[in-house]
Simulated assay, not measured.
Amino acid sequence: MNYWRHKAEDLVMDESFQQYCMGTNPAAIRFWEQWQAAHPEKRDLVQTAKVMYLCLNGGLDADVFAAHHRKFTEALFARGIRPGMQERKIQAVKQNGWKWYALAVAATLTGLVLTMIWMRKDVPATESNMPVYASKAGERKSFQLPDGSKVVLNAASTLRLEPGFHNGKRELTLEGEAFFDIAQDVSAPFVIHTEDMDITVLGTAFNVKAYKDDQTVETALIRGRVRVDMPAGQQIYLQPKEKLVIARQTESSDIQPLQPQRADMRKAPGGYAIDSLTHIPQDSAIVELSWVDNRLIFADESFGDIARKLERWYGVQIRFETETLRGYHFTGHFNKETLHRVLEVMQLSRPFGFRFENDHTVVLHQ
């Protein structure tokens, strides 16, 4: 399709452009990035259309947005409005009915966007109307935030934009794990809040792992520079290829003692260690980021930690019949393998048994 003559309203209604804005289709993302590179004079138009779409979309995922679109169409049909219809009074103007319909929708979109922009200036954002991005167990999502920052959300995770994000105050709250590639904006620092730390960046790529049921939380820096503020008052600055590991204090029976190499961390809130990122010698893969490429990797990790990772990865529940199994350590590298196959390979390293009680429950035993 030739997009040269398209206006912002036309782009908003294009399915490929919508997928580009939402970050749900790699082919669409690649096409629109290449199209802008080939037509730099159209970048402002594309960005204007993107802002319009994001305002209309409000951070909804594709399924919810499609449902809303169906309701909108059904409401039009209920009022007797169909594509191709024209006002009977307008006899002198002869034009294709679908073009008339498209112009009407475009005008409606423009008016709605202007109304929303005006409302944003006067009505403060609240927690209830800010976008929330969420993934279920066994599901990973990639998308782009309104400021252009790219995010990959790992399984069983939630990312909530804080009030004011659209107005230059780039703050959000994460529960779970996400990889961020931040759009640089010196005037508006990017701040991620978790239960155990706040991370401030200006423009960088990094990973944050902050699941509530893990014994540690981690920040792994790929490029740039970040500052981590912890409740106890410590301020830590990370350099590229470093990760910060913070120990948690919990009474949960699912949380095992810290591994020996982390013994220098106090087993209390605020205890931490700075490590290098973990690389796999065979292909230089970074363990902390392997999930972004849909690769399941663990390096000398306890079975208890691995079980939690497998639960999120495959959307199952894992139960230990024998507690000693939790202390077993494994190293493994898997690419698109089934859970059954992963467990079979692990059995080659240490003896244990497993059985599937149903599609969602796995029992581990000796």
Rank of each mutant, 00 (worst) to 15 (best):
288 E>Q: 12
246 I>W: 02
318 I>T: 00
212 K>I: 07
227 R>V: 06
205 A>S: 14
282 Q>L: 09
223 R>L: 11
290 S>R: 00
234 Q>F: 10
270 G>Y: 05
295 R>G: 11
199 I>W: 08
320 F>K: 06
256 Q>C: 15
202 L>A: 11
221 L>S: 01
234 Q>I: 05
255 I>H: 07
227 R>L: 13
221 L>D: 01
196 D>T: 13
307 A>G: 05
323 E>I: 12
214 D>P: 02
225 R>Q: 11
277 L>W: 05
323 E>D: 13
311 E>Y: 00
301 E>W: 07
278 T>D: 12
197 M>R: 07
203 G>K: 03
257 P>L: 13
251 E>Q: 14
256 Q>K: 14
272 Y>V: 04
208 V>Q: 03
314 Y>E: 00
279 H>G: 05
316 V>W: 00
288 E>R: 03
280 I>D: 12
205 A>N: 03
212 K>Y: 11
243 K>G: 02
214 D>G: 03
317 Q>P: 00
262 R>L: 15
268 A>C: 08
218 E>G: 04
282 Q>W: 04
233 G>T: 09
189 P>M: 01
281 P>M: 05
229 D>L: 13
322 T>S: 15
262 R>T: 06
310 L>N: 04
244 L>K: 04
216 T>H: 01
247 A>N: 09
186 V>M: 14
280 I>P: 09
239 Q>T: 12
200 T>K: 15
257 P>I: 14
257 P>T: 14
193 H>M: 11
197 M>E: 11
295 R>L: 02
276 S>W: 04
248 R>K: 14
314 Y>G: 00
216 T>I: 14
265 M>Y: 01
314 Y>F: 06
212 K>W: 05
204 T>P: 05
221 L>E: 03
324 T>K: 14
259 Q>C: 10
186 V>I: 14
233 G>K: 05
297 I>D: 09
190 F>Q: 00
286 I>F: 00
308 R>C: 06
274 I>P: 01
240 P>N: 06
222 I>Y: 09
260 P>M: 10
259 Q>K: 14
276 S>K: 12
274 I>A: 09
262 R>K: 12
285 A>E: 08
235 Q>E: 12
280 I>M: 08
218 E>A: 03
297 I>F: 06
224 G>E: 01
198 D>K: 13
273 A>G: 07
256 Q>T: 15
199 I>A: 09
250 T>D: 14
274 I>L: 05
308 R>P: 01
277 L>T: 10
256 Q>H: 12
298 F>A: 07
277 L>E: 08
202 L>D: 03
238 L>Q: 03
263 A>R: 14
293 D>H: 05
213 D>F: 06
218 E>R: 10
244 L>W: 06
308 R>V: 05
282 Q>N: 13
253 S>G: 15
290 S>Y: 01
254 D>Y: 12
190 F>E: 02
251 E>A: 15
289 L>P: 09
282 Q>Y: 11
251 E>N: 13
271 G>H: 07
304 G>D: 09
225 R>Y: 06
225 R>V: 08
213 D>K: 12
316 V>I: 03
278 T>M: 09
238 L>D: 01
309 K>P: 07
194 T>I: 13
258 L>M: 13
320 F>M: 08
189 P>E: 04
228 V>Y: 07
292 V>C: 08
319 R>V: 15
214 D>K: 02
